[in-house]
Structures are given as C-alpha cells and as structure tokens.
C-alpha cells in the first residue's frame, strides 16, 4: 500500500469542497439544534432547495448574485412554511415534520412532472450552472499545485471553490461567534432550556424560533450551493442520509460550539476516506468487494453516531455541563 498517497488523499479530504459544504450545513444545524434546541431532521431539504434554487436560476440566465439570492429565498420560504405549523409543537413533532418536508422536496424534485425544471431523478448537470461561478474567479485558468495537492484553479473541483467554500465557512463561524455572545443568543439558549420560562419573561419565543430556523436554513441552502458546484444536483444524493451525516458531524464536533461543526466535518470525511483506502489496500476483493467497502464505511458512521450520542453527547469540543442535547 502506498502510504504517502493515502495520507495525501486523506489530507485532501480535509480541505475538500464537500467537507466545507458539510461543515457549513452543520453550522446551520447548530443554530437550530445547538443554540435553540430545534430538532431539525430535514437539513438536507434546505441544501437541496438551495442547490435547486441556484442551479435553476443560473440555467434561466440569472447572474451569480441573483442565483445565490434565489437559493436563499427558497430556504427562507421553506423555513417559513415549515415553521408556521410546527414551531408551536413539541420537539419530536418538529423532527417528524422536518424529515417529512425534506422528503417532500426531494419527491417533488425528482418527479417526472418537473423534468424540464429539475431534470427529475437524474437531476441537473454541473456544467449547466457552473459557469457564472467559475467566471467570477479573479484567477487565471489552469492548474495550481500546493505541496502534494494539485487542482484546477477554476474548473469544477477547483481551488476557487475551495477558497470560496472555506471563506464562507469562516464567515459563518464569525456570525455564530458573535450571535452566541449576544443577548439574541441568550434568548435562544433560554428557549433551548425551557421555552415557557422564556415566554413568561416576555420574549416572543415563536419569532425567535422562526428566526433561528430561517437563519440556519439559509446557511444550509448556501451549503447546498457549495455542495453541488463541483458535481451535479442529484435529488437522491441529498436525502435523509445526508441529514443524518450532518447530524453525526455536528454531534462529533460538539453542538453549541463555534468550531465543532468544522472539526466534525473534517474528521468525518478524513476518517471515512482513511477507512476506505486502508480497506481497499488490505482487504482482498474476494472478501469484500469495493462497493461493500463503501457500505462498510457507512455502517461505521451509523455505529459511531450511536456510540457518540450515548457516551459522549457533548462531542469533542462541547462542555458536558452546558450539554445542548436533551435539554427537554
């Protein structure tokens, strides 16, 4: 087995655009769950809507900024539709409704009725909506090498998407850092602990939850854009399992922390890549076929999620005393 190549691959995973997209999605979920205690089990729905919004608007000829705005708008509308019936209900209801709503987005998106718009189950090709983003790059075309990493500068899985992706993640972190230290964040924290108490103190709990849902959802939608820029919009790749990966990432890094989602995402994808590469190099094809190795990786993710929640619910960076999970 080629250890250098393996390490380069694993390290490459840490800075990959997918990792940034998942980190961002987890930051959005962190606002919902870590800060407010909302059990959003449909984060992938926000990502998918963001991806659709961006891709469809771009294909329709909208400029980059307008397409991003369309994605954000889609997330806002979705959050409002989702929040109005459910934010007054108990937590586990919200979990069921959000997971159902995300599923509805996917079902509608992949429906043959909307083929002209969404491409149905085969989705939208990356090349049909990447150009505005790539054209916005200030760098010359070509490839660039940094140490062992060599990527195209602007085209698809590029340095450009890495720079923008991680830049957005950094901005989102700053936002969370500011909000967690503000009176606004304090109200959310209070709601996470006991919303009736906060209501009795004259705060409009419903409005705060809605703000949290919208803000986290918008961040999710932007994550969706970053996620699909180096690939295609595939409704079936952005379903329930994506939501569960985001949850695993958040809980791994630590809910209600600023850097938890980033650390979680990096660890998650790097570890998964490490497992896959090591197994591909050591387990003979007769024992485990390559798609089985893939599945083996996801089995480990599932088990990790279980063990994590049971034995270290505060994650790596979390503080047990301020445990965000299980506030009610």
């Amino acid at each position: 087995m080629d250890w250098t190549n393996l390490l380069v691959n694993v390290a490459g995973e840490i800075i990959a655009p997918t990792t940034a997209a998942y980190a961002l999605a987890a930051i959005g979920l962190n606002i919902h769950f870590g800060l407010t205690g909302l059990l959003n089990m449909g984060q992938a729905g926000f990502l998918l809507l963001g991806a659709y919004g961006f891709a469809i608007a771009t294909i329709a000829g909208w400029p980059l900024w307008a397409a991003v705005l369309a994605a954000i708008l889609a997330a806002v509308v979705f959050a409002l539709i989702l929040g109005i019936p459910t934010l007054k209900l108990r937590g586990d209801y919200l979990a069921i409704v959000t997971i159902a709503a995300a599923e509805i987005v996917r079902i509608v998106g992949r429906s043959t009725t909307l083929t002209d718009l969404t491409g149905a189950s085969s989705g939208l090709r990356g090349n049909s909506y990447k150009h505005t983003f790539q054209d916005a790059s200030p760098f010359p075309d070509g490839t660039w090498e940094l140490g062992p990493f060599e990527y195209a500068i602007n085209a698809s899985n590029s340095w450009w998407i890495r720079i923008v992706g991680w830049g957005v993640v950094a901005l989102a972190c700053l936002l969370i850092w500011l909000l967690m230290r503000s009176p606004w964040g304090r109200v959310l924290k209070g709601i996470r602990e006991d919303e009736d108490a906060v209501r009795s103190l004259g705060k409009n709990v419903y409005a705060y939850k809605m703000q949290s849902l919208v803000l986290g959802g918008v961040i999710g939608a932007v994550a969706g854009i970053i996620y699909v820029l180096p690939r295609a919009v595939q409704p079936d790749a952005m379903g329930r399992s994506m939501t569960f990966f985001i949850w695993t990432i958040l809980l791994l890094g630590g809910a209600a922390t600023v850097f938890g989602p980033i650390l979680g995402s990096m660890l998650f994808w790097a570890a998964l890549m490490l497992i896959k590469l090591v197994m591909r190099g050591t387990v003979p094809e007769t024992v485990m076929r390559s798609e089985q190795i893939e599945q083996f990786g996801w089995i480990i993710v599932g088990i990790t999620l279980m063990l994590l929640v049971i034995f270290r619910p505060q994650g790596i960076l979390g503080d047990k005393k301020e445990l965000a999970i299980n506030a009610h």
Binding site: L175, L178, L179, S182, P183, W184, G185, R186, V187, K189, G190, E193, D194, A197, V198, L201, G202, K203, Q211, L215, K321, E322, L323, A327
Partner: peptide, 26 residues
C-alpha cells in the same frame, strides 16, 4: 434555566434589550 448561569438567567428577564434583535445583536 438550569444550564445557564444565575446572572444569565437574570439578564434574560430584562426587557428592551436591543441586542435581542437578530441584526442589532451583530
């Protein structure tokens, strides 16, 4: 609110804090 400190509990009780608005908070 058990997982907040006593002083944070108290601060939460106060009204008209402009920082409780999402945008002002920033």
């Amino acid at each position: 609110l058990s997982r907040m400190t006593v002083i944070e509990n108290m601060r939460l009780g106060a009204g008209s804090q402009p920082g409780e608005n999402l945008f002002t908070a920033l």
